[in-house]
Design a protein around this nucleic acid. Sequence first.
DNA 1: CAATTTATAGCACCGAATGCCAAAATGGAA
DNA 2: TTCCATTTTGGCATTCGGTGCTATAAATTG
Lengths: 210, 210
Amino acid sequence: MTRTARHGADGPPAVARGRRPATSRENVARAALDLFNRQGYDETTVDEIAAAVGVSRRTFFRYYDSKREVVWGEFDAELVRLEEKLASASTDEPMMDVLRRAVVATNRFGAGELDELRIRMGLISSVPTLVAHSAVRYAEWCDVVAGFVAGRIGGTPDDLGPQTVARAALGAAMAAFTCWARYDTDDLTGEVDRAFRLLATGFDEVRLRG
Amino acid sequence: MTRTARHGADGPPAVARGRRPATSRENVARAALDLFNRQGYDETTVDEIAAAVGVSRRTFFRYYDSKREVVWGEFDAELVRLEEKLASASTDEPMMDVLRRAVVATNRFGAGELDELRIRMGLISSVPTLVAHSAVRYAEWCDVVAGFVAGRIGGTPDDLGPQTVARAALGAAMAAFTCWARYDTDDLTGEVDRAFRLLATGFDEVRLRG
DNA sequence: CAATTTATAGCACCGAATGCCAAAATGGAA
DNA sequence: TTCCATTTTGGCATTCGGTGCTATAAATTG
């Protein structure tokens, strides 16, 4: 958990002192995802990952808090971007429009990242252990959205209104992601956009058919 | 998992042969929830639960597949009821109305059940391990709703439309439940009703304020 | 070279969960 | 009653994820 100062955004470069890390989060993630992809998540032990990276089991847990976390990569960063987008939006723009555009914007990925992302999302939406863990990660996402909604309509983020919007929005985003991961459409942002437009219309049956 | 024939709904009573069970699922659940409530979920080990019931650790796992499952009680039965309600609805009634009424109906509980339900929901929505596991259970709920939506608008349950509706609906239901469990409103069905009405209006900002 | 800093390896340990097998308890039939 | 089939239980061994503690290895600085 206590990552090195190098990872911090501020402070002087501060030349590395002490023993050099034997690997990196990226390295560990690559090795782990490769194993997950080849032999399955449950069939891969932490010992195997550690061995593949050339590091001890104990050291693996210094890079990631758990085996599950590896699949999530740098999800935290995306969360910060979402919060910024929502905060900087014009108060004139309708709430659900702001939300849709913010989610779409935070989910733009380069062509080079899409393959790995699809592997990650495929795992997250199919392996029970990871489906389970996703609820914990997504809860943070919901907190951000609920905070934004409460700021718009008043009251606290814990009230029914903000909670319902946040969790329904999460559902729309998850639907878009899993559909994109399952089928071979390259258009992730398009799926997200469509899902949020359905959400904002209250799922009008006529438009749903279209 | 392989429960006794006694639990089956059909077949002759078939007088009990063989050794009699030392306890029951209800017994185990009571003892476990009591411990969870007093000393916390993570702080309660399976050994303690087993001891409280007067049974061995190994036997505990014959009544529940996991420690997590205890909190969920007979959730499966509710799922069946939801599926029936949705299937038996008139095709004239708007989709979102059917959905709202079905979810409200399957979540009516007697006054005597509400206290225990609140404890269960409080745990499910606050203990990380259980928050995580809820995603697995709720996935079955989503499958039911997605199947219903696909039947209404055409296509398969895996398509974006049904998936978005199902997951958003789940979000609304979860919001209602957690708000109800947190605050001291006795009106669970009212919360569910309100959440689904918000959902069906596309979260109109004006109504959200109300 | 010594001191300090940082990362690592390895060990012991806990708790959840599973497979396996022997033993206990029950009803029914010989 | 005795024996058998049936069902549940208990205990053991094992696997795996995760954590705390400690000693040691590798690096910079003086």
